[in-house]
Design a protein around this nucleic acid. Structure first.
Lengths: 223, 223, 223, 223
DNA sequence: TATGAATGAGAGTTCATTCAT
DNA sequence: TATGAATGAACTCTCATTCAT
């Protein structure tokens, strides 16, 4: 009989199951609180494993969240690629941005995992994991950047990638401002802070439209 | 005449001097390593003080670095304001961006303190400190945003602030990508990663030009 | 114009006033909480003095409370002496014990200061203070013991002092059991603990009667 | 055969052994110095463990010593119970007191642990530990009190427990007077202090005899 | 593989006491 | 004398990580 999670993961399938259980537990905890408030013991408990077992699958706490972020990023790039591929003709800027916004809107976890990605998760990980993550991401980013480039006739060589990196920058940069720490939360409620209360998706949408419009203007020769 | 740091800081001036001594020690350590590798005991040793003394001036490690970042930010806004005020006429986009780039170029510490500012330093600080920091920053940002707005005739109401926030977003977002962790450093040296080696200032300059150009295009009615 | 407490205590009178202010502050705080929860800064604040000033009058925190206990003890011995002296004839055991109980009942602070006296306050004090305290107490105890001895015709040489020491033992021993720590307080409320809820004064009264009766029995020859 | 303490205490037995190792270390240190001079780091070092490991077994320093005192108390009550049970007939007061004295004489540590028990050890412990300790002690005290009651025909209902509590009071009360702090030690050597040099066991024995004699007298109706 | 006991570093904190002013 | 800044030694507590079993 197949059981949900085997006590000893002999086969690759069983190993994957445990690995997933850890990621699922970490994800659930991250949704509830944040990286800093999560400890490995809790992840292990949630995953139905011992603390030490977690370390058989992930070398550090950061690696767990790097993988989580990686999953989310890949998933996002998947749907982004599909959307870009399915569009037969050249897109309009608002269409593209609206689509990108929509895909992010559906992935609140990605939005929360991106800001700490470089600053926190990419510290304290093994070379192995770092390499795997970075190379995969590089390949995908390059590919998706290419698709974006094809989607807009005003984009020049390499600018598709620029656009994608800019999108990441917006998510990371405005994401941090949009999610204040507990102490700041109440400060941000004050009326004088109204102008600094940032809605990440609005900012993302607006800034991306402006950025793409700027690129179009610069690249389009005026006679 | 300035005097050496008093053994006992009795006057307000002397207390400020001691406070500064702590910040200077923290700054020096931050230049050498990074936030994560620094502990309060080490800062105290550097500043020639006991750990408990540091605690009289700052409640947490984060508060120290928040104040450091605040100093750098204020200093940057100072020179930015001056530059904006001294320009008699409307600026060109490249002039403004070049100036902004130059002012950042002179402040490498600011560039390293900005990315962790919201994510790290703003956690674990007292409400008091958070309030002081945020309110000052809000006021200054609003003011500087106003100056930017006046500098460009194509900017509409409130867009000066948008520009400034966008600048911050670029510093934070690209700053994180530009400064890889030790493990990633060698990975980023590989040839296949060339496209992802980010020079913060180049990115900042280019993106800001594009963004401002976009704003100008959008705001300028075509007859 | 005479002021309440002079800023600089030049005369002996002024010094005494400051000393008293410290003791009064310590007493008030002790009534509210307990030795462990009191810190010198708080005593100083209450007394309207700086922390360092407190140390001009008392070498350690324990010395303050030793003096407080000493005051209370001396006061108690004063009234005890008076009561013993005013009784013209030999007392009955219940009369004496009732009187002693009554005098304690009026001095709740003494009852709370006695248990920690030897264990806590007599540590960490200067030889000077220790000597002064012990010698005074020895003299007084010897004297009061003598008065007790005269009050009961069945007491033999030296047994008046024994009785007095026994009274102290009862206050200290049962006093500790009668005043449980915060954690224990709720435990002691449980029904199964009823037999162990100690009323110090009842215990004192009963045990002292039994003890004196025992002495009388032993000392009285049966023909 | 008994085995050495395991590097890793996996079984319950091994855990008990490690727990004991900590208590043994604490006991040794207590014999050498006193509660105040002992810190958890030192106990850990003595037990050959890391500080954190001690923390796995005991939450606070007070808990360690509460358990030490509990062990000693239980051990004493064990032998007391046995002695009371083995006596076929009603005891004489001097026999009982002599026996009790003897059992205390063999337990110098108990005599030193009792005075700070309520005042010091019962602070800063978890509710859990407090409950366990108090309930066990209550049960045992009630039981031993009952045995004492049966041992003397003159004791009335509930007075066995009174006797036992009185014994504890004597140990605590005179114990504190018998063990002066270092500063007081030399003071107590002075000739004028001779009358106040207390030998705990002598005091215990004498007072207990007097107390029991008193109870007997009071309870025995004179025709 | 899996476990969870053990580690150990360090953060935060408190506070009695000292001492420069 | 009076002040309160500075000290520095603890202590509690947490937790990622290691490693014996």
């Amino acid at each position: 009989m197949s059981e949900l999670i085997a006590r000893r993961a002999v086969s690759t399938v069983q190993k994957e199951a445990k690995r997933d259980a850890i990621l699922i537990a970490a994800r659930a905890l991250f949704v509830e609180t944040g990286f800093g408030d999560i400890n490995i013991a809790e992840i292990a408990r949630r995953a139905g494993l011992a603390k030490g077992t977690v370390y058989l699958y992930f070398k550090t706490k950061e690696e767990i969240f790097l993988n989580l972020a990686s999953e989310e990023l890949n998933d996002w790039l998947d749907v982004l690629d599909n959307a870009l591929l399915s569009a037969e003709t050249t897109r309009s800027i608002p269409d593209f941005v609206g689509m990108a916004r929509h895909l992010l809107e559906e992935r609140p976890l990605l939005l929360r995992l991106m800001p700490p990605l470089h600053l926190v998760f990419e510290n304290n990980i093994s070379l192995d994991q770092a390499l795997r993550f970075k190379q995969l991401l590089a390949r995908r980013t390059q590919y998706t950047g290419g698709l974006i480039e094809k989607g807009f006739d005003f984009l020049e060589e390499g600018q598709g990638l620029d656009v994608l990196l800019n999108m990441q920058c917006l998510i990371v940069g405005f994401g941090q401002m949009a999610e204040p720490s507990p102490v700041l939360q109440e400060i941000m409620e004050r009326p004088e802070m109204a102008a600094f209360r940032i809605d990440l998706l609005d900012k993302f949408e607006h800034s991306l439209i402006v950025y793409l419009t700027g690129l179009k203007t610069i690249n389009t020769p005026q006679e």
